[in-house]
Write a protein that binds this DNA or RNA. Structure first.
Lengths: 236, 236
DNA sequence: TGCGGCCTCGCTATTTTTGGGGAGTAAAAA
DNA sequence: TTTTTACTCCCCAAAAATAGCGAGGCCGCA
């Protein structure tokens, strides 16, 4: 088992294109003997991508009906951290039941496991595998392979972040005072309060904020704070 | 190796209190033969916690000097996804060099590896281990144990989320319009621009922003944007 | 020694945001 | 069905932020 996992991780490590990720899902499906294997993610600017073994019929149907907005797997995993057995999701609504029936008709397994992964700039990804089998068999599969799947999800996401161009953009360097000023404003201080906190005049503080704004390419203070936060320059 | 890892993960699985997490760091330090092992996290309402093997002297010193705001490990890992060797962080600033010198004086290893983990509502955690050794030895350690450490980080974070009591309740849910409004302001739009973008009156937009402010417990718009960002409600 | 970046302070004026009110409709949940 | 929630619009006065102008001292680097 271990050597097989190493091989799969190594293949992923070598991936340089989206097609490679696509091929990796095929290899992984076969490696684990599953019905389907899917990696789906949202990058830092909200664009969605997918790599997986679903039939194009099902993918088209899914997109056409905008199932993205009601899929219990997605809605459930957005609020979770841990790998989630589809059994533990909320399938109570009528729409969810119909969705599942239709999915199974298209070859999706009745059992599934989905692992959420989150990146540093709001990137959100789901690694899903599914199978047609009974509950005990599926729980047995999860017990045996969950850890491997976590590592695979991690590796997939690492690649997805590499492909997320625009994420690498260099953060401008702010002076210590500029950082302090922006950090205080991010905590909700008014300029006057922040100035008092730093024991300087409000005018001086304003100079720092303006400086930070220009360096960050921000058009107002709120924008500057948002950029400083997403660039990891400050911590709230 | 595998059985040792399983045992450590099992111990973590059994943890029901913060003290258990604290003890787990001791076990893990010994298990891996490290100088220190630390898990540090920020929950969904911005409270910070730590469990680790650092001396209380160093922890006190760290807090007293507010190193949280300049620690290159924290600032660096906020923008990363992958486990990060301390060697790859930015230690160029004078303050960072002094910080590292002081840390080593307090018994922190000169080599370190830190794994960032992110939860569904802006929870952010760092699993750190460090050691005193030369570069090749440390790279060898990383190559051998990085995967185990990823799984351990995952398990730690699972526990931290269990302890995050306010996670369900405090996770402020903004309405779609409120989210849009805050997201536009985070992009630097003025109220008037944001209102135009959403095709509503500026007055209406203000209602959303105020609503979001109150839900987020923020004292002004900038604060609200900062909170929405760090809670992962919006992305810039 | 000069140049640039950083830190500090001041003024005036305009634009924007904020904090209170109140009020109606439509859709969704209880 | 009732109630709640979300969405939409409006007024007013005070507070805050923005934009432009100016000044001087300190430090490091070339």
């Amino acid at each position: 088992m271990a050597s097989g996992l190493e091989k799969q991780l190594h293949l992923l490590e070598q991936a340089t294109t989206l097609e490679h990720l696509q091929q990796a899902t095929l290899h992984l499906r076969d490696h684990f003997g599953l019905a389907h294997f899917i990696y789906h993610w949202v990058n830092s600017v909200g664009e969605r991508f997918g790599a997986g073994t679903y039939s194009s019929d099902w993918v088209d149907r899914y997109l056409e009906k905008d199932y993205l907005r009601m899929d219990p797997v997605i809605l459930g995993c957005i609020t979770r951290f841990h790998p989630t057995n589809w059994k533990d999701l909320d399938w109570s609504s009528k729409a969810a039941k119909a969705f599942l029936r239709e999915a199974i008709d298209y070859g999706v397994g009745n059992q599934g496991l989905t692992i959420p992964v989150r990146g540093p700039s709001g990137q959100f990804a789901l690694l899903t595998c599914n199978q047609t089998c009974d509950d005990p068999a599926w729980e047995h599969f999860i017990a045996n392979h969950q850890q491997d799947l976590i590592l695979i999800a991690h590796q997939f996401n690492r690649k997805a972040l590499e492909f997320d161009t625009g994420f690498e953009a260099q953060a401008p360097s702010l002076s210590p005072r500029e950082l302090s000023a922006i950090a205080l404003l991010a905590k909700g201080f008014s300029r006057a309060q922040a100035a008092q906190d730093l024991s300087i005049s409000e005018h001086t503080l304003r100079v720092y904020v303006e400086g930070a704004r220009h360096k960050l390419g921000a058009i107002n203070t709120t924008h500057a704070v948002a950029r400083a936060l997403s660039n990891g320059l400050i911590v709230v």
